[in-house]
Design a protein around this nucleic acid. Sequence first.
DNA 1: TATAATTAACTAAGTGTTTAGTTAGTATAA
DNA 2: TTATACTAACTAAACACTTAGTTAATTATA
Lengths: 207, 207
Amino acid sequence: MNKRDAVETKARILSAAEDIFSEVGFDGARVDDIAKDAGVNKALIYYYFKSKNEILETLFSSLIEDVRKMLIESMERTPDVCGDDGYRALFDVYIRFVSQKRKIIRVAVAESAKMDATSSIVMELGNLIINAEIEVLRKEYEKKGLHFPKDKQELLVMEFFTGLTPFLSYALYKDQWENQYGLSEKALQDYFYQAFKKAHLAAHLSE
Amino acid sequence: MNKRDAVETKARILSAAEDIFSEVGFDGARVDDIAKDAGVNKALIYYYFKSKNEILETLFSSLIEDVRKMLIESMERTPDVCGDDGYRALFDVYIRFVSQKRKIIRVAVAESAKMDATSSIVMELGNLIINAEIEVLRKEYEKKGLHFPKDKQELLVMEFFTGLTPFLSYALYKDQWENQYGLSEKALQDYFYQAFKKAHLAAHLSE
DNA sequence: TATAATTAACTAAGTGTTTAGTTAGTATAA
DNA sequence: TTATACTAACTAAACACTTAGTTAATTATA
């Protein structure tokens, strides 16, 4: 077997783990089941990862890395966009991100919901996303010749509650809303975007 | 050894279970630990509950029952309140609810985040809360002589994303924001209320 | 009113099963 | 022939749940 097979095998293990973690949670997941779904022997998992926990950490690291890349790319693509267009661009990045990463976000939220999760991945995600929002706002203030109040920590909380958590809940409950109420993905996103924009405009611009 | 009050003992078991579930999740929780924390023999837990799962179901049933009571009481207390006051009343009920029930809400969110959770307790909570919001809105439309568009399901989704999930995240991440950013509970709630009101006004009244 | 019968509340010490992780080895490509 | 990729078979520990009782209090009976 050559090296390319190994990379692909490792990816298959991670993918199977992601599926199973998102279905039954980390503690509920069985390494045997991950191995079975990945089509490998269980011992091979311990050849690539030192523990079940390291599989989760690898998945979380990739998630953080991916969202960081996504945000950076978006900012480089539209460096001067602010206001309405800025929100739209940010919204598109978020929605693409949570749609793509829905499964692992479920796991992150479930793990963060545990009380002892001090090094919470959701907080880490939140900080990344908040910084992106601040960047959009900063441009907006700048364009108006105003100084952005950098140190206002309450703003971060506002951003978190009004900005990040609806996206997380979108990732968590999208399927259920679609099934239970027959809502299309497009309809969901349209209404969601209106709420997102209004909440942000209300929070930052109208007073 | 003296016999203790059975009702009180059962309550102690449930309380210990709630603590441990919220710390390490349902699958991560050990029945031995619950017994130890409740100060009873493990077998007594199986005397009162047929399984570990039944403990969780009992806790979830109580949560649903409690929120239902809370909402009904609030509506009976302020039957004609609408508009700004209506939102304030609803907000107060919500915030009191999530503050009191924070621990079990963590568990509910963690469990709901698992993909197979079809009979999701969060969806059940969501429907209860959504109905309460609709009631406030209905009064508002009525007072203005307008007919409330009952069948708009998109409204439910809006309510869910903009109304319920920030409360859930408040329950989940309040401690972390307080610790990490030194925010007081009052400051959090004040800003949170502004966001809540604006999001709702924006969603329902400004178009 | 004393005591025997009954039951609710509780426990020590398991049982069998499931689990994460290991060992000791084989096959293959370079 | 050496390093990488892989597996069947295994183990120790952890786990949910059970068994086989005990204790304390209540109720029925003499």
